[in-house]
């Protein structure tokens, strides 16, 4: 049994368009950051200060992904940058869901289970495990 051609085409298209979408969002976000001189109200000089990992206001722990729609609505730089980064993180999830659908459709039971396990691991990494690492 070989990977179906349809799955190959779908996965290739997802990867291609996701990377275009993601990089576009990051470019829009960084352009806004430089034009406005701030992002989410934080001055750019402080955003660019990456030497201290202990300052929580400027890294991802202070910007939950649930704030992304609000950020986009306000045309905020951090909203766009975060969206771009989360599109990257979610790209493999989309690829795996496509694979899962394909294996279910072709009644490939073993690979349906294996893909489900991988999806579960990713789900755990995105939703469950973070509860143990956030302060």
């Amino acid at each position: 049994m070989e990977t179906s051609d349809k799955l190959t085409a779908v996965v290739s298209a997802i990867l291609k368009y996701a990377i275009i979408l993601s990089i576009s969002c990051i470019i829009i976000g960084t352009s806004l950051m430089f034009i406005n001189g701030n992002a989410n109200g934080i001055p750019i000089s402080q955003l660019a200060n990456y030497e201290n990992p202990k300052s929580p206001s400027y890294n991802s722990s202070s910007f939950s992904p649930v704030l992304i729609p609000q950020g986009i609505a306000h045309f905020d730089a951090l909203g766009f940058i975060s969206l771009g980064l989360w599109v990257l993180i979610f790209t493999p999830v989309t690829v795996l869901i496509s694979s899962l659908v394909d294996y279910m459709y072709t009644k490939n039971r073993l690979y349906t289970i294996l893909t489900f396990i991988v999806l579960f691991n990713l789900f755990a990494a995105i939703v469950i495990v973070p509860h143990f690492v956030t302060n």
Binding site: I26, L47, Y50, P65, L78, L85, I89, V129
Partner: peptide, 27 residues
Amino acid sequence: GITAATGSSIYWYAGYIQFFLASATAI
């Protein structure tokens, strides 16, 4: 990509993604 995405989400919540740096390096 799948492996890195798994680690990235945990890094996000732990606060190890610095927007200024990550944007520049991703591009």
